[in-house]
Design a protein around this nucleic acid. Structure first.
Length: 278
DNA sequence: GGCCCGATGGGCT
DNA sequence: GCCCATCGGGCCA
């Protein structure tokens, strides 16, 4: 006899919980009380630098660009740290932006995070089954959507988290490129759900942003392209408010036309190490 | 590779 | 009652 739906959902939730419980010996070590007491510069590697509130206090477009190259960190309940370099973002500008949830100044319980101080997370459910992670920027109702990460640390845990949420868990194993190449994929891979809504990315113990390592090789060129999945927003549909690292294999959708267009606004990521004028 | 389409449920009109 | 800032599987080239 097939399990009732409610029980199936319960089993799904249990699998999620289980996946957070599964620990390698190293992860068990990290989760011992003495080692998990503080995440703030408690070990040498933490000196890489957590980004504070001032970083988020800039307009949506510049923040969306500034995010590229920075490292998003998620610390699970068991102490496991997952890291991914941000390679793709979208800016949503606020009331005038017809594609934004805050269009026309709409402020509801759901989108309250968009109107809170810069650095506040706005996490919402989409299509009944997925989450999207946004970060409030300067400007009322403006925010940045995080669309793709290059997974750096904790890839096997990310794979488990992603697999536990897929229907055919017996199917093929996910490739590294499939772990975080989309706004809802990265939420699955980092175990980010609605409970993260309205948290402060500059203060939270379970999720934060770190300075990306300074580029040693060639600086990345940033492509400005149209945003994804907003076909209903009139003139706003085509505005180049999606930003991604050109050539990165971790990006969710490549826009060849935008890459070939003359884009004088294209710049290198990470704090203007290089300005590229094509 | 590209295109098509079903899943799925909270939010909003 | 419709919309939706998505994803993954199936199919075809």
């Amino acid at each position: 006899m097939p399990a009732p739906l409610s029980r199936k959902i319960g089993q799904k939730k249990q699998r999620l919980a289980d996946s957070e419980q599964q620990q390698t010996p190293k992860e068990r070590l990290l989760s011992t009380p003495g080692l998990r007491r503080s995440i703030y510069f408690s070990s040498p590697e933490d000196h890489s630098g957590r980004l504070g509130p001032e970083f988020f206090d800039q307009p949506a477009v510049t923040l969306a660009r500034a995010f590229l190259g920075q490292v998003l960190v998620r610390r699970l309940a068991d102490g496991t740290e997952l890291r991914g370099r941000i390679v793709e973002t979208e800016a949503y500008l606020g009331p005038e932006d017809e594609a934004a949830h805050s269009r026309g100044g709409r402020q509801t319980p759901r989108n309250r995070g968009m109107f809170m101080k810069p650095g506040t997370l706005y996490v919402y459910l989409i299509y009944g089954m997925y989450f999207c992670l946004n970060v409030s920027s300067q400007g009322a109702g403006a925010c940045v959507l995080l669309r793709a990460l290059e997974p750096l640390e904790g890839l096997e845990t990310m794979r488990q988290l992603r697999n536990s949420l897929r229907k055919s868990t017996v199917g093929r194993s996910l490739k590294d490129r499939e772990l975080c190449s989309g706004p809802s994929k990265l939420c699955q891979a980092l175990a980010i759900d609605k409970s993260f809504d309205q948290r402060d990315l500059a203060q939270d113990d379970a999720v934060w942003l770190e300075h990306g390592p300074l580029e040693s090789s060639s600086p990345a060129v940033v492509v400005a392209a149209a945003r994804i999945g907003i076909g209903h927003a009139g003139e706003w549909t085509q505005k180049p408010l999606r930003f991604y690292v050109q050539g990165s294999p971790w990006v969710s959708v490549v826009d060849r036309v935008a890459e070939q267009m003359d884009q004088p606004q294209q710049t290198a990521c990470s704090e203007g190490l290089l300005i590229v004028q094509k």
